[in-house]
Amino acid sequence: MPEQFHPGTGAQSDVEISLREVSKRYPASDADAVRPLSIDIARGEFLVLVGPSGCGKTTTLRMINRLVEPSGGEIWVDGKNTAHVDPDELRRHIGYVIQQVGLLPHLSIGENVGLVPKMLDWSKERIRQRVDELLDLVGLDPDTYRSRYPKQLSGGQQQRVGVARALAADPPVMLMDEPFGAIDPITRGHLQDEFLKLQARIRKTIVFVTHDIDEALRLGDRIAIFDEDARLAQLDTPLAILTSPADEFVRSFIGDGAAIRRLSLLRVGDLPAVPETSTGTGIEVDPGETVSAVLEKILAAGLDSAVVRGRGSLTVQDMLLATAARDESAVAS
């Protein structure tokens, strides 16, 4: 199986999902909803599809679990051509989360989460344990929520259950279609944070659809940006997209404040620090912390520099200049 890979992530060899010249044209339409698209998604990668409404994100996502049949091209998941796998069998091993959540209202939370394991003929005891483990994982107390009904939960809680349900049979792949799109901004922020932490632990291969570029920048290892005509405008890491937008469409889609946004993506460990000078006047920070978080700490403490553990010290100026310098080098290149 020929393995091409796009730059941007670390481990290159292990491809979980491979889209090969996949396209979709709906009947009675005279334009492709998805234009021939090739992307390889690595095991454990978090890929975000982002773009304006109608650019084919949902269609692309639903072709992966065959809720939509491609008009052309092939999709390989876990080394198998999905066209040759029974669709129901395929879907039981791919988590699917949608904006409307779609919990079965007449089943309890526990029964909803246990649906796929039940289809896979797990024993009652194993399902019960798995349900509790998952509710715990998504931050819902099993004893409190197991036997409630969906309508007794808030939107945010329902979507936690939606995520738990998708994870139930421990599928390697998760497809998520604007999962936090219908949730109020504050709860959405919490859910995004928690989901990132969760992903750091469970390392699923995730394809995540959103129309919100901020959400994409925050969550994705890589981001695929589509324009209104379903053209793939850029596929790259959040930092690379902010630093060097491929074209005018990407630039306008990112909107203003690219430099400021970069501060929350850059880690202080990535900046050139001055090897430890005198006695540390600044606060000590980890190399893994983001520039914006460190700036926040420095300013709050009324200082003007920080010591990056094991690296050296950085002043506010250093940080701002380093971020800006990347901008200039990007524009120059």
């Binding site: 949608i98 779609g102 497809l175």
Partner: peptide
């Protein structure tokens, strides 16, 4: 609700 049926299809029913 179509989205409930969609979710059910999506998990392999």
């Amino acid at each position: 609700d179509r989205s409930i049926i969609d979710a059910a299809r999506g998990m392999g029913m």
